[in-house]
Computed example of a mutant assay.
Amino acid sequence: MKRCLILMLPLALAACAKPPEGEPATPPAAVAPAATQPAPADTTALSAYHWRLNDAKDASGKRIEALFVSADKPLQLDFADGRISVSNACNHMGGAYSVEGDKLKFDRLASTLMACTDPKLMALDQEIGKRLETVSTFALQSGDAPTLTLTGGNGDVLTFKGDPTAETRYGGKGETAFLEVAAQTKPCNHPLIPNMQCLQVRELEYDDKGIKTGTDGEFQNFYSAIEGYTHEPGIRNVVRVKRYAIKNPPADGSSLAYVLDMVVESETVAP
């Protein structure tokens, strides 16, 4: 984060000629310092990374344990198009945000209404929600280890580590596609991977109202991976993905990358 240094400009002093004898000297008029405004923060990095909670301390320096429920799935913030998305709590949360100088303000967050069996995970929604729904001072550090630090009015300090988004890694916005993944994989040939099992995938089409259109094609061997997707044998899924062109792909690799956006439909299929 770039901090604005307020500089007190010295008064410009005009050369004073000696006043005529008997005439009082007129003091130079005071020059008001130029008004300054905080420099706008560079918020480009906010949307360039997934921000995963790495540390959280209260005003006394004590770790806020209530914010750390799952070590392998830390709380994650994502910023895009003026909105924040909070994941890896019990429910998915989201809302609008705004930036003014070094202040980050979140509107009241909306949430899904799923119940979780783990009481700590259930409480996590409220713990992160009450800390985000206040005005926070933020600091961004880019480079090899990007960091986002939020400091609340109550003295809580939340530190997040940045992981590049797919748009950042692949250099542009992806194309949205819907894929149906069959319940079972099948053997497929690969020059470098013996005994390879391939997902069986076909692309689906939907209109702007979410109604499926066209005729379903045949399932095909899918030699790529879908980032973020783990296949369970016996489960048929329809997934929404972002598809990206890979610049300079390896000779034996795909020219396209697929990143899971969401699972639209799941069904257990009898063997």
Rank of each mutant, 00 (worst) to 15 (best):
I64P: 00
L132A: 02
G171K: 13
L124C: 01
T117V: 08
A35D: 03
Q37M: 12
D58V: 05
E127R: 02
T268W: 04
A48F: 00
S142I: 04
A166W: 04
A251K: 13
G152P: 01
D78V: 13
Q220C: 02
L53A: 10
L199P: 05
L5W: 11
E100S: 13
C198Y: 09
A32I: 02
A15L: 11
A245V: 12
D107G: 15
G172H: 12
A34T: 11
P164G: 00
G129K: 01
E175A: 08
G22T: 01
K242Y: 15
G228A: 01
A123L: 06
Y223K: 00
L104M: 13
L140V: 09
S224A: 14
V263S: 06
L109V: 02
A96W: 01
D118P: 01
M262E: 05
Y258A: 08
Y49L: 04
A145D: 13
M262T: 03
Y244M: 09
L109C: 01
A66P: 08
R108L: 14
P40E: 12
T112W: 09
L13Y: 10
K161L: 07
R240C: 05
S111C: 02
R202V: 05
V135I: 06
I226K: 07
C188G: 06
Q37F: 15
D42V: 07
L204K: 08
K105H: 08
T215A: 15
E180T: 11
S254Q: 04
T165R: 04
M1W: 13
C188R: 03
